[in-house]
Design a protein around this nucleic acid. Structure first.
Lengths: 174, 174
DNA sequence: CATACGTTCGAACGTTCGTTCGAATTATAG
DNA sequence: CTATAATTCGAACGAACGTTCGAACGTATG
């Protein structure tokens, strides 16, 4: 709270005139963040029908958001369970919706190709891959979000031993 | 500190008789944890030469440790950067060694099969997958560590579209 | 017995943190 | 202008935290 006060130039007491508590502020940030990601994702998914491409879009959307909001997401990941029961359940609901969307994409691919893998583990592993980015991502080393998303897509979809088949207009330089 | 005091039954001041500060305690926990993981890993790797199997051993070792020390690792992941310069560099060194080991395993596989993928991204994605487990793992839903490690190995190595080829004595029921 | 040492503790210190209070300042309405 | 409401702030409160201090206790040694 004192950091925000210093950064915004508003006094500590002035902050509390607009937001009743630190917890509510954290809640609003989390709600806004997840809602934005889901909204953007839904918009992008409307233009694509191919299951594999839809998964790649999911990854790209998530990675892009994490890369452009790195410090914010860091705080967010660390304050994961610091909300009291009332507020935390609403956030949990939004997270669940996001999880369900990704689970649906996985099931579509699984169904289309007659594959046999655990969709839950696949989704949560993918989440882990992406959510961990904030601990290591360096723009100068790892390139832009698109390149990273493509590499992660290759791993999740084809694994490292089946190489990254160039998808669509991708140039595959790595 | 007061939580530890309560949990151990020793007074707060008594704690400081054995450990000079909270930071040093955190440092010792981190050092012991990472050293143990690396020591166990090296022992297991000595028995196997096939690059793919070595990666699967790496995953199994990491997952097993995370699953059996779930609450501890949770704290550890959250206190990632809370050490002052002197202590944090030593931990960073151990982490770097661990990273290098995994990077070497990836490069071996890459070399053996003439593959073309970004080893850095592969390693860090794998770390993300495993380190994220503590946020969702449920023994009753996700089975034991071995099953989870096998699924994650399948994803990283073969991806979800190339299915999990049964390796060794695995029974592949999912 | 006395001495020294390791161990344990209650109590407190100093700081940080989230929050509140009352007043001062500014904008808005009649 | 005056009155009412919205905005902003300095100062402080109360709790939590990491840490320290001095004393009490037990044990081993001479």
């Amino acid at each position: 709270m004192r950091d925000i006060s210093r950064a915004t130039g508003m006094s500590l007491a002035g902050l509390y005139h607009y937001c009743e508590s630190k917890e509510r502020l954290l809640f609003l940030i989390q709600k806004h963040t997840f809602s934005t990601i889901i909204k953007d994702l839904k918009a992008r998914l409307e233009t694509v029908t191919e299951p594999e491409d839809r998964i790649r879009i999911f990854i790209l959307n998530h990675v892009q958001y994490f890369v452009s909001n790195q410090p914010g997401l860091k705080v967010l990941a660390h304050e994961d369970e610091s909300l009291k029961h009332g507020l935390s359940t609403e956030i949990a609901g939004i997270k669940r919706e996001y999880y369900r969307i990704c689970l649906g994409l996985m099931q579509d691919l699984r169904c289309q190709r007659g594959l046999d893998f655990n969709t839950r583990t696949a989704v949560l592993s993918l989440f882990g891959m992406i959510n961990w980015i904030y601990t290591w991502y360096n723009p100068r080393v790892d390139g832009h979000a698109g390149a990273l998303a493509e590499q992660m897509g290759n791993i999740v979809l084809n694994g490292i031993v089946h190489g990254g088949k160039p998808r669509k207009k991708s140039t595959r330089k790595q």
